[in-house]
Write a protein that binds this DNA or RNA. Sequence first.
DNA 1: GTCTATATAATGATAGAC
DNA 2: GTCTATCATTATATAGAC
Lengths: 189, 189
Amino acid sequence: MGDGRTTNKRDAEATAERILHCAQEVFHKRGYDGATTREIADRAGVNIALISRYFGSKRGLFEKAITPYLSLERFFDEPVESLADRLADVYVHTTPMDGFDPFVVLLKSVSSPDVGPLLIEALERQAIEPLKRVLKGKDKAARATLIATQLAGLILRFRVLQSPPRNAAEREAIRKRLTAYLSALIEVG
Amino acid sequence: MGDGRTTNKRDAEATAERILHCAQEVFHKRGYDGATTREIADRAGVNIALISRYFGSKRGLFEKAITPYLSLERFFDEPVESLADRLADVYVHTTPMDGFDPFVVLLKSVSSPDVGPLLIEALERQAIEPLKRVLKGKDKAARATLIATQLAGLILRFRVLQSPPRNAAEREAIRKRLTAYLSALIEVG
DNA sequence: GTCTATATAATGATAGAC
DNA sequence: GTCTATCATTATATAGAC
C-alpha cells in the first residue's frame, strides 16, 4: 500500500472484470465448447495465462461469467397480473441484447459434458423453481414447464437459429397469441 | 463380378449401414462437436479410416445420418383434425426413442459452425415450411412458429436436459393443456 | 475392403521470466 | 501483475500396407 511502483490491486480487478465481460460475449457467440480461452483473452486484450491465474480454468471462468445470470427473478418484482405481458414483450422482441443473453449461452452449451450439468442445476434453481412459486392453484409444475419450454423455444428460434419474425405484423401476431397462452397458464385454473 | 476371393460390394454397403446407425446414436448422445469419429467407428466395430473412405468426412457422415430425418411429414399423412392430439401425444411421451431422435441431435448441434447452417436449412425446409402448408386461415407463419417452438422447448426439457414429467398426473396435465394450445393454433382463427 | 501408422492442427493449462 | 514459451492431449484426415 502506498508503493507507487507496484501496480495495485484495483488494476487486477479491472482486468478480471474485462475478462468476464468478454467471456460473456464469446460464450454467447460460440457456446462453451466452441469458445476458446485464446479468443476471450485476445478480445480482452490480455494474455491467455491470466485466465487460469484469475479463474482457475475455462470452466471456472464460465461459472463466474454465466451462471449467476440464469434467472427470471427480475420478472417477479412487478405484479404477477402483468407477468404474461412482460414475458411476451421481452421474448418476442428480438434485439440481440447487447451481445449477451445467458439463455442463449445455455442453449448453445447444454450438451457440453463439462458445464451441462452445471447449467441444468442453475436453470432449475434460478428459473423454474421461482416460476413455480409465483403460480397459484393446481398443476403448478405442468404450467411452469409449458411456460418455460415455450419461451425457451422462442429464444432458440429467434436468438440462436436467428430466424426472428419477418415483419412487424408477424411479430405482433406472435406476441398476441403468446400473451393469451401465458395468461391462461399463469392464472389459476 | 463372380470372383470368389474378393469381398463383394454388399459387404461394404452393410458396413456403411452399420456406421450410419452407430453415428446416429453417438451424435444423439454427444451432438456434432462432442462426437468423435473414433467412438463411432469403435461402436460399429470398424476402423476409423473407413469413415473418411465411405462418407468423405465427419460432416459428410452427419449429413447422411441426420439431415434426412429432420422432418415432420409423417404427422401430415393422417387428417389435420387429429394433428394436435398426435403431436401432443408424441412429444409428451418421453421414451428415449431407441437412442436416436433427430431433433435432439439438432438441439445439441445447432451451435456448431460446421453443421449449424446445414441444420437450420433442413429444419426450415423439412419441418417449418410443411407445417405452414397444412395450416389454414391467417397468421400462418406466426402460428407455425409458436407450434414449432413449443414442441422444441419440450424436446429440450424432456429429452436433452432429461427432466421429464415427474409422474403420470403431471404428464397428463401437460398433455391436456398442450393439446388445447396446439388445437387453437392449428384451427383457423 | 480394411487396417496401421502418421501428418497436421487445434486446444487448455502451466512454469518461470520480466 | 503480466507475458513468453512450451507441454501434453486430442482431434480429423490420409497415404499406403495387407
